[in-house]
Simulated scan of single mutants.
Amino acid sequence: MTQPVALITGGATGIGKETAKILAAKGAIVYISGRRSDVGEEAVAEIRAAAAGSGGDAFFVQNDVGDEEAVASMFSDIVSRHGRLDMAVNNAGINTESKTLADSDTQAFRAMLETNVLGVYHCMKLEIRQMLAQGHGSIVNLASIAGLNGIPWTGTYAATKHAVVGLTKSAALDHATQNVRINAIAPGAIHTDIIDASIALGVYDTSAIAAIHPMQRMGRPEEVARAICWLLSDEASFVTGHIMNIDGGFQAK
């Protein structure tokens, strides 16, 4: 059986890293991308440790998904090495402010658009082209409960995640008969390093975040990663254009 090749943007921390661990432990060659090489190389060591004995491996690529030329170079390198890309997770994303729309900052919004929308767009274009050329592939994008709802103090961020949902559903319909599946995950609040940093700065309150979910807690990165890996796999072969809620019951309210 051919060893699968996967790319996870923003794969050095949180949900991306946990997804990479699972895929590598199942024998995949996993490329993770991110802006910080020190964090990326640390993540590679963790992923390789999780993959010990499986035949899986991991590599880090320093990359900014908002830079279309850099993204094209990354894809060219992966495909030249392996001849294909079987799975992709467009996970890189940022949230640069928590304000009402009236008080929001245009430059902060522009930064989120560059990463959260154009970053996904840049990657999806190349992923889909390669997967069509090879005759198969599976893509999972990271949306959010903010991409399905209006949430106070997050209007600009929510707009970017609504865009991810639109890109996902439309591209899934474009290629539904071509053996390329495209889905998205809509997580609730997930307990990552980014959340911890925000809590430490007083931006968020742990109990308040937990309380918005009927399960009365935040999610864990591995809980989202397991769902991503299922959507990527052949076990989800009849699933495309789906936005999966991993949100402790938030969307059921």
Rank of each mutant, 00 (worst) to 15 (best):
I78P: 05
G249A: 12
S207P: 00
A211Q: 11
T9D: 02
L101T: 14
D234P: 15
S98A: 05
T106H: 04
P221D: 02
R84D: 01
G83S: 09
P221L: 07
M87S: 09
A176E: 13
R226F: 07
R181G: 11
V165C: 11
E46T: 14
G135I: 08
V239E: 10
H213C: 10
V89C: 06
C123Q: 00
A200E: 14
T19W: 06
T115R: 01
F59D: 04
W153E: 11
G135A: 12
H82C: 00
M74Q: 08
P221M: 10
R36E: 05
T9S: 15
M218E: 11
G66T: 01
I212A: 07
V89R: 10
D103K: 14
F238S: 11
A189G: 11
R220Y: 07
E68D: 13
D57W: 03
I195S: 01
A252S: 10
G14F: 04
D64H: 14
A208R: 15
F59N: 07
H122G: 05
A70L: 04
I228S: 08
F250P: 04
A50W: 05
E222H: 04
G40P: 14
E18D: 10
I209T: 12
S76P: 01
W230V: 08
I29W: 04
E46I: 10
K125W: 01
K125E: 13
G16P: 05
S237P: 06
L148H: 08
V164Q: 05
M124G: 08
M215A: 15
L173S: 10
A49Q: 12
T177K: 15
